[in-house]
């Protein structure tokens, strides 16, 4: 029988990666096809935004032609873009200047 005396120190000295990379932005674009009710619903259900915030962002897309919905690490924004395309929204990602 063997006893564990100490947790193996596999991750001896974790390298802290400097996150110097600039954040990425998720942009949703206006198009004359997607319904306002649908865009609002997507913002509420996928991002968990309040009805007010979802409505504000939806109207911003509608009036300004686009809106930055959120920003973050590249991987997170990549999966947001994929989800938006799954919903049929015109979404792109761009790195902050």
């Amino acid at each position: 029988m063997v006893g564990m005396t100490a947790m193996p120190d596999v991750l001896s000295s974790p390298e802290i990666r400097e996150t110097t990379e600039k954040a990425w932005r998720l942009i949703v674009w206006n198009d004359p096809v997607n319904l306002m009710s649908y865009v609002s619903y997507v913002f509420r259900s996928y991002f968990g935004f309040s009805p007010e915030k979802a409505e504000t962002l939806m109207l911003q897309v509608h009036h300004d032609g686009f809106c930055t919905v959120r920003s973050g690490a590249r991987e997170a924004i990549e999966s947001d873009v994929q989800a938006m395309h799954g919903f049929g929204l015109q979404a792109t990602m761009t790195q902050e200047a």
């Binding site: 990549e78 873009v81 994929q82 395309h85 049929g88 015109q90 979404a91 792109t92 990602m93 761009t94």
Partner: peptide
């Protein structure tokens, strides 16, 4: 339209 580009880049 179903499979749009994810970036202008």
């Amino acid at each position: 339209r179903l499979l749009p580009d994810a970036s202008d880049d």
